[in-house]
Amino acid sequence: MHNFHAQAGVFYGVGVGPGDPLLITLKAHHLIQSADVICYLANQVGTSQACDIAHISIASRNEPATEIAIPMPMSTDRTAANAAYDLGAKKITEQIKTGKSVVFLCEGDPLFFGSFSYLLERLSDAHECFVVPGVSSVNGAASALQQPLTLLQESFVVMSGRHTDAQLEQALISHDSVVIMKAGRARPRILAILDKAGRTADANYLAYIGRENEEILTDVAQLANQAGPYFSLFVVLRQERNS
């Protein structure tokens, strides 16, 4: 098997998976090792979850990469976020124009609720882009629970804690399997909607999947009725499965 090396002047969106560094694909690993520039989102103190996940791949490089940290605002204001992506795209473009290969590290999968999507739309018209899929938190959650997401004719939908109460309730009523991502701040609201839809007993709660501080709760009735971490989700599965 030949190594897959980053090519000059190409922008790569690389999925690093939900948390376990060993779930990074070989293709992503080779790109992280060989790219001239490693780019990632960072919080206000410079910490990057994606970098933390990819630390084995980064540490095994022959020489350090140039790094571009894109600081993201703490607020959910889209104007501020768009400004951060605009600045990140500008910095990436500067590197690509000098013939550098740039890898953007993205938690989970780059194109599944991935921040890479916002950079891709800013860069793809002018530059060559390449995407490496990653293990999403949805798949990571199913593996951690050792439960199939769907069987036979079961329906499956992925929602977000940013959806309205009515949208979440309708999904819980209409579908057998429901994953609700971005559950952090919406956790109390989601718990109330699960109860209203009669799906509390079907629900599982997971946070920081594949990481040292992983949390799995199969009885969400025990879950504190307060906001939780950003990296958390609910997996709602029928107790009586088709088999």
Rank of each mutant, 00 (worst) to 15 (best):
L145E: 04
V131E: 06
V138P: 03
C106A: 07
L151H: 05
V138S: 08
A126F: 05
L119M: 06
V138A: 07
S155N: 13
L119N: 09
V138T: 05
A141Y: 13
V158I: 15
L151D: 09
C106D: 07
F156K: 04
V158G: 05
L119K: 02
E107N: 04
F130S: 13
P110H: 01
E107F: 04
C106K: 01
E128N: 03
L151Q: 10
L119D: 08
G108A: 09
S117T: 09
L119R: 06
V135W: 07
V135M: 15
Q153R: 11
Y118C: 07
S115K: 03
V132Y: 04
E121Q: 12
L151R: 15
G108P: 06
G134Q: 14
A126W: 11
S143Y: 09
L152T: 07
S115M: 10
F156Q: 04
L119C: 07
N139Q: 04
N139A: 14
G114C: 08
A126D: 15
C106Y: 00
F130L: 15
L111F: 12
N139Y: 04
E154T: 12
A144E: 13
S115Y: 03
E128Q: 14
Y118F: 11
L145F: 05
F113S: 08
P110F: 02
S137Y: 03
H127P: 08
P110V: 04
F156I: 01
G108I: 06
C129W: 06
V132N: 12
L119H: 06
L123E: 02
S115R: 01
V138Y: 09
Y118T: 01
A144D: 10
D109H: 07
V135D: 14
L151P: 00
V135T: 08
V158Q: 05
V131C: 09
P148F: 00
E128C: 03
S136T: 15
S136M: 14
Q146A: 11
Q153Y: 11
L120P: 08
G108F: 07
Q147E: 11
S155R: 13
T150E: 10
A141D: 07
P133W: 12
L152E: 04
M159L: 15
G140Y: 04
S143G: 02
Y118R: 04
N139P: 01
G134N: 09
R122Y: 11
F116T: 03
G108D: 08
L149G: 02
S117I: 13
L145C: 00
E154H: 03
S124T: 12
F113D: 02
L151I: 12
L111G: 00
L120E: 09
D125T: 05
S117D: 01
V135Q: 13
S137A: 06
L152A: 05
L145S: 09
V138W: 08
S143C: 15
L152H: 14
V132P: 15
P133Y: 13
C129A: 13
L120Y: 15
F130Y: 14
F156V: 00
S137L: 10
M159R: 15
N139F: 14
P110I: 02
V131R: 08
V157E: 06
G108S: 02
Q147R: 13
Q153V: 08
F112E: 00
F112V: 15
V157G: 03
S143N: 12
V135P: 14
E128M: 11
E107S: 06
R122K: 13
L123M: 09
L111P: 01
N139R: 02
